[in-house]
């Protein structure tokens, strides 16, 4: 009796998901932009973001995640995760937008100040930005159809 109820409930949902166009309602894309110094007419310099055509060790980059709900139903429990690419060291959150939760092992996420790293000889030390291996954002509220946003963090080329 109980099994039957579950089946009955599950069947219409499965149908609804299959019928909803498109099959993947979340559109997620990533961009990496290099920080370049631009000289303004008044002689000052400012930091601008440009395509990463010229990037050498020590340069700063901004990693951006663009997300949008292209479906018809709200998207709940949205978690956007970005493992740090090889050759990139985490530096901090971008100037605008929410700061991500970070992790030094891909398992435990917390603000950086609360993370520690085990030392090879025993004991542990406070984690530094360069130790971060994963960043993620959890959206507290469901993403309504047709809405989206951009999240970003900054990193340094190792």
């Amino acid at each position: 009796m109980r099994h039957l109820a579950l089946l009955v409930l599950a069947a219409p949902i499965a149908t609804a998901v299959a019928a909803a166009p498109p099959a993947r309602p979340l559109d997620l894309s990533t961009r990496v932009l290099a920080e370049v110094r631009e000289r303004a007419a008044d002689g000052t310099t400012r930091i601008a973001l440009a395509a990463p055509t010229r990037v050498v060790p020590g340069d700063r980059v901004t990693v951006m995640l663009d997300y949008r709900n292209t479906g018809t139903a709200p998207i709940a429990d949205l978690v956007l995760a970005n493992p740090l690419p090889a050759g990139m060291a985490y530096r901090g959150p971008a100037a605008t937008g929410p700061a991500p939760e970070v992790s030094v092992d891909g398992r435990r996420y917390a603000p950086l100040a609360q993370l520690t790293l085990a030392l090879p000889g025993g004991g542990s030390r406070a984690a530094a930005a360069a130790d971060v291996t994963h960043v993620r954002w959890r959206l507290a509220r469901p993403l309504a159809p047709g809405t989206g946003g951009t999240l970003a963090f900054t990193a340094t080329i190792r």
């Binding site: 609804a16 997620l28 055509t53 493992p83 690419p85």
Partner: peptide, 30 residues
């Protein structure tokens, strides 16, 4: 240097995951 993000979410209670595009650039010679 290749970056790819991943999202997990649920629609009407059904969990799903999606991978982003892969963006890639080369480290230049300093």
């Amino acid at each position: 240097i290749v970056n790819q993000a991943k999202a997990t979410y649920s629609v009407n209670g059904t969990p799903a995951t999606v991978d982003s595009n892969r963006t890639e650039f080369l480290v230049d010679r300093k």
